[in-house]
């Protein structure tokens, strides 16, 4: 509905003002990222004498090296490396599992609908709404009993379980747009449950798989609540380690190392955003609007 021939916005002054406002807000959104990058490339002395927005005079990559391999979080001085790997180790299985199960659920809920699957759908909706605080205490106890408390496996479990509500929703809302006839015809031809799923539904699902994987990846990688409650010490995810690093009050505050560590923690999701931004936005809107 935008219209350049519109008298009110068509004037040159109006256009200039609009572009100026947009450019200024762009700067505002980019400023924190810019400050993080330049701070991470300065020495501590330069940070103290210079200011936030000044570009680095003497470029140094030491903060990055330290953040990755030798910065101390509490008693552990191995940098972010180990925690980064922890996050990779639980994020990948959790994303794959929750997407796969979500796809199967969505398939049943649309192509093999029954009262049972309708009830499940209604029941799962709640999972999108609850504040997770309300399940933390019982879950902590359960993980302890299962012997997977404070482990990467425990985080895979928790993230898979609480990711299911969203992934199921994604696939269900996507499959409902696929014409019934396709599946009905296959059923008449004698194709079974798994054959239809594999040969007809899955090949059509690529776009929604991408959306679901990106959504889950962002959610699980960026999670802090489950990480801080269900893990400790060496098994912590990178978000928790970053928070420990920044908020450890002992010794000199190394802002440059903190910023390098923050960028390291942000890189995987930023990378996904740059590469697949379109799907990222679709996931956000699908997950949010319907959830």
């Amino acid at each position: 509905m935008a219209d350049a021939s519109n008298p009110a916005t068509g004037t040159n002054l109006g256009r200039v003002l609009i572009y100026a406002a947009l450019a200024l807000t762009c700067l505002y959104y980019l400023l924190p990222l810019y400050v993080m990058v330049v701070t991470s490339l300065k020495s501590l002395d330069e940070i103290r004498t210079g200011n936030l927005v000044a570009p680095p005079q003497n470029l140094t990559f030491d903060p990055w090296i330290k953040a990755w391999s030798s910065a101390c979080t509490g008693v552990n001085c191995g940098g972010m490396r180990g925690y980064f790997m922890n996050s990779v180790m639980f994020t990948i299985p959790a994303v794959m599992l929750s997407t796969l199960i979500g796809a199967a659920n969505g398939y049943v809920m649309t192509m093999w609908r029954s009262r049972f699957s309708d009830i499940l759908f209604a029941a799962l909706m709640m999972g999108c709404f609850i504040p997770f605080q309300v399940v933390l205490l019982p879950m902590a106890r359960t993980l302890g009993v299962l012997g997977i408390a404070n482990s990467v496996l425990g985080l895979v479990f928790v993230h898979t379980v609480y990711g299911l509500a969203f992934t199921t929703l994604f696939f269900r809302n996507y499959y409902i747009t696929i014409p019934d006839e396709l599946v009905k015809a296959a059923k008449i031809d004698g194709a079974g449950f798994f054959l239809i799923f594999r040969r007809i539904i899955l090949p059509l699902s690529i776009p929604i798989i991408v959306v679901s994987v990106i959504w889950q990846f962002t959610q699980v990688w960026n999670d802090f609540l489950f990480g801080v409650v269900f893990s400790s010490g060496e098994s912590q995810p990178i978000t928790v380690a970053l928070n420990n690093l920044v908020n450890t009050s002992t010794g000199v505050k190394e802002y440059n190392v903190n910023m390098a560590a923050a960028i390291i923690a942000a890189l995987p999701t930023l990378f996904v955003y740059v590469v697949a931004g379109k799907h990222f936005v679709r996931g956000l809107t699908a997950g949010a609007v319907k959830g």
């Binding site: 924190p32 400050v35 960026n222 802090f224 978000t239 928070n243 802002y255 923690a265």
Partner: peptide, 28 residues
């Protein structure tokens, strides 16, 4: 421009908090 407005959404709130803690640092 849209991508610029939207990229913070890809970040963890922990990263956002860390960045703003530094920007709003009362001293530096």
């Amino acid at each position: 421009i849209r991508s610029v407005y939207l990229y913070p959404m890809a970040l963890s709130f922990i990263v956002t908090g860390t960045a703003w803690k530094w920007l709003l640092n009362p001293e530096l």
